[in-house]
Simulated assay, not measured.
Amino acid sequence: MPLERKTARPQANAIKGRGAASWVPGRYEKRQVEGEDDGWDTLYAEDDFTPDPRPETRVTEERARSIISRNQSPDIGFSQSVNPYRGCEHGCVYCFARPSHAYLDLSPGLDFETRLFAKTNAAELLRKELAKPGYVPHPIALGINTDGYQPIERERRITRECLEALAEARHPVSLITKSALIARDLDLLAPMARQGLVSVMLSVTTLDNKLSSQLEPRAAAPHTRIKTIAALHEAGVPVGVLVAPIIPMVTDRHLEHILEAAHAAGARAAGYVLLRLPHELKQVWREWLELHVPERAGHVMSLVQQMRGGKDYDSRFGTRMRGEGPFADLIAMRFAKARKRLGFPDLPPLRRDAFRAPKLDSPQGDLF
């Protein structure tokens, strides 16, 4: 039975260590609780409708039924992905994956970063998928919808288990993360890199520590991500930087500085993505603007809409990542000019010819 969840007060407050400030209702919720003041100023007297000032992270273990997700999107560079977790404790307020929590009858707001799900059988399922007769290897993007190296990975180690399965099968894999925890797995990544089986992109949004703590409160600090790029590069792992998302009048001024710092650290590829606001993310994002940069909120949204055909979001392939219009064109030109000046050579293609299907223990062996 769906949980009945209280809503936040009309004037939400920023919560330290969290990106969202309220439980924004999911688009599939059938029941919501709203507070109405009767005029006696008692509505919030006992904090019944105010988010906990220190909402705890809760992790639910689940047994997934399948693990490899496939897509045919023409504007992303992979056709297969594996996500060890649902929800992400990094709490990035702009995360395009937030609306996916609505499928669980949970809020894309605070629930997305506090109600997490760990797929405990992910590596087991992955080995079974790779062992299927006729399986054709294509690079797998590991931890894309939500970061595979978010804080709970330190103890759960599900991403590492999946990486071990891919390493054993000599299967190509790419990773995108905002976490320095990926350096823990250099003992796996470095040998895979020598075989041409892995590449990594570090996502960097800003070099401003204060702004980063507001936008992505539990992700690694910007300078730590730059150091992680250096550590991967020194270990021989092909690594690049993804400037994402670029937010007009909030982070766009950092574009060239991020590229320069990442290139100096050893990044050999660069990309960018403009802010995307699908479904409930529009409300989560507007709430953040009003709390943190109220004097610019209207201007930010005006520029966003100028890049999205007058709407908050345009989901069309070909434009959803880059936008359109004068401001989007300016960002594209700035990026291209900086990329050319710095001389990013691009990451090498991943090998597919080294794949060897896992050999699974047959239960029939116990009969003889």
Rank of each mutant, 00 (worst) to 15 (best):
I76W: 14
P99C: 07
G87H: 13
A97C: 09
A97F: 09
S79D: 06
Q80E: 15
R98A: 05
Q72P: 00
C95A: 06
S73Q: 12
R98K: 13
D111N: 02
A102K: 02
Q72H: 11
Q72G: 15
C95Y: 01
A102T: 09
G109W: 05
A97K: 07
D105I: 04
N83S: 08
Q72K: 11
C95H: 03
G91M: 04
A97D: 14
I76A: 01
S73H: 11
H90A: 03
I76H: 02
H101W: 08
R86M: 10
Q72T: 13
Q80N: 14
G109M: 02
S107Q: 10
A102S: 15
L110E: 01
R98T: 07
S69P: 02
I68N: 13
C92K: 03
F96M: 10
C92A: 09
C88A: 07
D105A: 08
H90Y: 08
P74T: 13
L104C: 07
S100T: 15
Q80D: 05
N71D: 09
Y85S: 06
L106C: 05
S69F: 03
R86N: 08
P84I: 09
E89P: 00
S107K: 12
C92Q: 09
P108V: 13
P84W: 07
P108Y: 05
G87K: 05
D111V: 00
G91F: 02
D105V: 04
R86W: 08
C92P: 06
C88S: 05
L106M: 12
I67V: 14
Y103P: 04
S79L: 13
S66W: 15
S79Q: 03
V82K: 00
S81M: 15
A97N: 05
Y103N: 14
S81E: 15
S69T: 10
C88Q: 10
D105H: 14
D111C: 00
D111M: 00
G77N: 14
S107I: 12
L104N: 04
P84M: 05
A97H: 06
F96A: 12
N83M: 07
S73C: 12
F78R: 03
L104H: 09
F96P: 00
P74H: 08
V82L: 13
L110W: 01
V93P: 05
Y94K: 01
I67W: 00
Y103I: 06
F78K: 02
R86C: 03
S100E: 08
L104I: 04
S79R: 15
S66F: 15
V93Q: 00
F78W: 14
Y94D: 00
N83G: 01
V82H: 01
V82F: 02
N83V: 04
D105W: 12
Y94F: 15
L104E: 14
